[in-house]
C-alpha cells in the first residue's frame, strides 16, 4: 500500500489491503529471489563466460548490480530489469513529449528522460507533404509547426553520441497533439506493446500510451494519409485550420475525461496501463453508473483493485 495516498474509511482500507495482498502473492510466486539492489552480487557460474548487459558491472571478479531491479537472463546474457526507474528509451519506442525549446533546425522535447529529446526539422514531414530539402525559410517557420509547450508525439530513432535521443515522425499520424489531456504516470506502468496508438472510434477518442509515461487522451483525428489531401493548396489548408478550431462535442469531452480518470486510478493503484485494462475500468464505471468525478473517489479505487485481483487470479488459475 506504500505510495497510495487516498483517504479511505476502515472497511475500504481492509478491502484494498486484501486485494493488493492477493495480487502480491501472485507476483511473489513468479520471481522473488531474482531481485537485487545496487551493489548486490549477481550469482553466475564461473565456468561459463557471460555477457554483462545493462545494470551490471564487474568488481573484483564478481558481477555486481548497478541498479535496483530484477535479474534477467537471456542465454548467457545477464542484465538487470529495473522495476521503478526513470524512463529509459529504446529504439522504436513511441513517446509523447512537450516542446521546451525551438532551436536551430530542431525542437527540444521534455520526455521524462535524463536529457531532452531532439526532433530534427528534417525528421518531420512537412505540413504540405512535399518531399524536399528543408530551406532556411522552413527553419524560420518552424514555430508554425510546433511552438513551445506544444505536445508532440514521436518515435525514438536513434541515440546520439552523448546518450541523448533523436526522435522522428514517420508518418502523418505523428506530430502535434491538440485538444485533449496529457497525463503523466510512472513510465514503468506502460509496457511496450505492438501498438501504442489507439483509435477508440466508439468513444471518439485517440489514446496514445507513450512509453515514457506521458499519455495522451484527445479527440479522434482522422489519419491523413491520403496523398491528394497532402498536396492541398492554400484554400484547403485554411479550411482544415478552421476545422481544428471547431467546437468539440460535449460527449467527446466526457469520454476524454472518463478515460483520463480511468488511467489516473490505475496509476495511483500502480497497475499496468494497457488499453484492455483501461476499457475494463471504464466499463466498470459505466455499469456502476458513476459520474466522471466519482471515478476518483476512494470506493472506485477499491473496486478496481478488487476486480484486478480477481482477474489476475482467474488468469493464473487458467494457466496453472
Amino acid at each position: 500500500m506504500r505510495g497510495i495516498e487516498i483517504s479511505l474509511n476502515q472497511t475500504q482500507k481492509i478491502r484494498l489491503q486484501r486485494a493488493l495482498k492477493q495480487l502480491e502473492s501472485l507476483y511473489l510466486r513468479a520471481n522473488f529471489n531474482a531481485s537485487v539492489t545496487v551493489a548486490d552480487t549477481i550469482p553466475v557460474s564461473n565456468e561459463d563466460t557471460i555477457l554483462k548487459g545493462h545494470g551490471t558491472s564487474e568488481r573484483d571478479g564478481e558481477v555486481v548490480a548497478t541498479l535496483c531491479g530484477v535479474v534477467e537472463r537471456v542465454n548467457k546474457l545477464v542484465y538487470v530489469r529495473t522495476l521503478r526507474a526513470r524512463y529509459k528509451p529504446e529504439i522504436g519506442d513511441i513517446i509523447v513529449g512537450r516542446v521546451v525549446e525551438v532551436a536551430q533546425k530542431r525542437w527540444k522535447l521534455e520526455i521524462n528522460f535524463s536529457q531532452d529529446a531532439v526532433l530534427m526539422l528534417s525528421s518531420m514531414n512537412l505540413p504540405d507533404g512535399i518531399q524536399r530539402r528543408r530551406t532556411a525559410l522552413d527553419e524560420l517557420n518552424m514555430r508554425s509547426i510546433f511552438e513551445e509547450n506544444d505536445v508532440v508525439c514521436g518515435e525514438v530513432r536513434n541515440f546520439q553520441n552523448d546518450g541523448g535521443i533523436q526522435l522522428q515522425a514517420r508518418s502523418q499520424k505523428y506530430g502535434k497533439l491538440e485538444k485533449g489531456q496529457l497525463l503523466t504516470i510512472p513510465p514503468y506502468l506502460v509496457k511496450r506493446q505492438k501498438h501504442h496508438f489507439h483509435h477508440l472510434e466508439h468513444y471518439g477518442v485517440d489514446l496514445i500510451l507513450g512509453c515514457n509515461g506521458f499519455i495522451w487522451v484527445g479527440e479522434l483525428v482522422e489519419a491523413r494519409d491520403c496523398i491528394e489531401e497532402d498536396q492541398l493548396n492554400n484554400t484547403e489548408q485554411q479550411f482544415t485550420k478552421s476545422n481544428t478550431t471547431k467546437e468539440m462535442p460535449l460527449e467527446t469531452r466526457r469520454s476524454i475525461c472518463q478515460i483520463a480518470n480511468a488511467i489516473r486510478v490505475l496509476s495511483i493503484l500502480g497497475f499496468n496501463v494497457t488499453l484492455e485494462v483501461i476499457l475494463e475500468t471504464i466499463d466498470l464505471s459505466r455499469t456502476l453508473n458513476l459520474g466522471i468525478d466519482e471515478m476518483l473517489g476512494p470506493e472506485f479505487h477499491v473496486l478496481v483493485a478488487e476486480r484486478e485481483a480477481e482477474r489476475r487470479t482467474s488468469m493464473t488459475k487458467r494457466k496453472g
Partner: peptide, 27 residues
Amino acid sequence: VVELKGKVACEISSADELTLTELMFNG
C-alpha cells in the same frame, strides 16, 4: 513485441541473423 534478442537480430542484415545472434548470446 520484439524482445532484446530480437533487437539484436534486427541489426544484422549481412549474415544469417539467427545463428549469429544465438552465437552471441551463448557467449
